[in-house]
Amino acid sequence: MNITQAIRDILGSNEAFAGKADQLSEDDSLFDMGLDSFGSVQLMLALEERFSVEFPDALLNRKSFATIRAIRDAVSTLVRQEAA
């Protein structure tokens, strides 16, 4: 399962990123590009559903959702913990 592609797919369903999610670099600031608090909540819900994980409160901050790389790191950690 390619986590990065899944993140791009989910981002693509957000209005701010429609049609350009695949062009984002891993370190582009998603907030600068228009991700708002509700957008990040929707993103979290979709990731939780897709990967059967739950984001703990400690990860519910702007840093965890600032870039595709940050999201992938958070999701990978959670997926590993789930598997262990």
């Binding site: 608090s37 509700f38 909540v41 979290m44 819900l45 939780e48 739950e54 984001f55 703990p56 409160d57 519910l60």
Partner: peptide, 14 residues
Amino acid sequence: ANTAKLLLVQKSSG
């Protein structure tokens, strides 16, 4: 309404 959205992912009341 904003809080309602945030509560969709918050896990604990602390």
